[in-house]
Design a binder for these strands. Structure first.
Lengths: 108, 108
DNA sequence: TTTAGTACTATGCAATACAAAGTACCATGT
DNA sequence: ACATGGTACTTTGTATTGCATAGTACTAAA
């Protein structure tokens, strides 16, 4: 039981929420997202984000298009589907409820 | 990918925090905790809480004593150890940071 | 042609919430 | 005395998912 492990556990489930939310604002590819998450102090690495994006795509919450890059291989630009927007809305509620519930449980 | 599943994911890591926090206020046994969590709208079931309590105890964050019950088998009353209090303090920071980080990442 | 950097893919592991089945103890009813 | 029901705890197995790691493929510069 170490703190880093627990932090990682806490991040679970909120990553989905954050990624969907970021993509809801504008299209992006993996590196954009990693950068954006980093700026919010939510560190994510490649091994996490690529499988996550694939999962969300397979579930119909995201779609993507290929775009050529000026230097380097082409990029997968993701955006949120209508179904994804709907799911995102539910995630917002879920998150708010969780924050409130934890507040209740942990305030003396 | 369904909402219930994601909710469960979001709860991960938070449960530890809530349980430690509840026990920091006063000693309790499993059913007390399940009840308290329920009142905070954080549903937990036996299969989750018993292994969690055992984990926390094995890591030295909790200790327990047996107490006879008026009706039914004896109960394990848990309380937070000094090490647990220290860990709890860190979890508080971690949680606050996470809430802030998610807020940044998900607000337009 | 080789090297470095970027982007994506694939495989395997560890942590943990939960379900489900099981064990043990006590009190009550017959 | 015995069966029944409720409470408390234990054990086992499963599914999900973040992460590490290694690998593939493309571009550009040396």
């Amino acid at each position: 039981m170490n703190l880093e492990n627990t932090k990682a556990q806490m991040r679970k489930g909120v990553l989905e929420f954050c990624i969907l939310s970021l993509l809801s604002n504008k299209e992006a590819y993996a590196s954009d997202l990693i950068q954006a998450m980093k700026e919010s102090k939510l560190l994510v690495v490649e091994g996490t984000i690529y499988p996550l994006l694939t999962r969300l795509k397979n579930d119909g919450l995201l779609s993507y298009r290929w775009e050529e890059s000026t230097g380097g291989p082409p990029r997968k630009y993701f955006k949120v589907t209508p179904l994804g927007e709907k799911f995102l809305e539910e995630l917002r509620n879920t998150w708010d409820e969780l924050v409130e519930a934890v507040g209740k449980a942990t305030s003396p």
